[in-house]
Amino acid sequence: MLSGSYDVGKFAVSVEAKSSFHYAKAQLLFILIQTLDFESLLRMVRDEVSFSGGYSTFSVVDILEMDVEVSKLPEFAAVGSGPLILAWAVFLCLVMSLPGSNTNLDIDHTSYAQRSFEFSPFNYLHGVLCSSIFKESDGPVSGFRGILRTFISAFVASYEISYQTEDSSLGMILNILREVYDGEESLCMQFWDKDSFIDGPIRSILHMVEKEYPFQISELIFFLSAVCHGSWPAQCVFNYLERMNGVTMLYAVPRSVTDNVNYHDQIEIHGPISIPGIEGITIPGGSHGYILKVLEDDVALVRWEVKYLLYSIILTYICFLR
């Protein structure tokens, strides 16, 4: 119905008809993703439940039959097939990670994942969330956000992601998560609930962004602003910021002490030092830091523990944005 000679989209002539068709296609995609039931799979992974003894509605025979159909999917219009193929790759990865499933399944889920990224699947999903026809629809927008949240969590649990300049996937994932949580108090409460196994992988993304602080400060601020809706989530964000009392940065170790510094050694600076990329904010003299890694040319990666420094940097950044 969506491609080839049976493509119903070719009957859409007016702008309104084309928009309605694209919205219907996006709804179909969300329905298929929800049908894969990533929530149950994530629960099975957490509890280390075997595939045969779990909650999956599909048998191994069902999965093999579905894989035959997915493998025959035409790569139509790129934007439509990318998220669907990626969802299937994530589903296979989670299933094959369960005890007792590898012996019956011999499918290369990584090839599906690589194929899907040729179509920028996260760009499509983010575009759907931000589209006016989606936001102004009478449908269950919160439900769509919940489906995407579970899918993103399943993806993070399946594949390793990191900051890479040549790959914009993490940036698009952060954009999607901000759209998902922003204004949804119930989802924000679940995000900060340590017992929420769905949000566990997503919380790891927050910690990843924190490690890049202060160099990824805008991503950190926008993420925290999206998950602070409601009194309890706002308190959680405040507590999170209060615990962040340090900055990790490169530091040129004085030659007089270069030969004596090792991993986790404590050092002290006698004068203020500037934070690269942030004007007007310095680490004050007398501050203590811990050596995280000794690099070449007398340079070390140091974690400086400075109380309230984070508040100063964030306030400076917010004023800069205004």
Rank of each mutant, 00 (worst) to 15 (best):
S3G: 05
G4H: 10
S5M: 10
F21S: 12
H22P: 06
A24V: 11
Q27H: 13
L32P: 02
L32D: 11
L36E: 00
F38G: 09
S50V: 00
S56I: 00
L64E: 08
M66K: 09
M66Y: 08
A78P: 03
V79N: 06
L98H: 07
N104I: 03
T110S: 14
S111R: 09
N123E: 07
H126T: 08
S131Y: 05
S131C: 08
I133P: 03
D138P: 09
R145A: 00
R149K: 15
F155H: 00
F155W: 08
I161G: 01
Y163S: 01
Q164L: 09
E184P: 05
L187R: 07
L187P: 01
M189N: 11
M189D: 10
K194T: 07
I205N: 02
H207V: 11
K211R: 14
P214V: 05
Q216R: 15
Q216K: 15
C236G: 12
F238D: 14
M244D: 01
N245K: 08
M249E: 01
Y251E: 05
Y251W: 10
Y251F: 14
V261A: 03
H264R: 15
I267D: 12
I267C: 08
I269H: 11
H270G: 13
G271E: 10
I273A: 12
G286F: 09
L295Y: 07
V299F: 09
V299Y: 08
A300Y: 09
E305P: 04
K307A: 14
Y311K: 14
S312E: 10
C319D: 14
L321D: 05
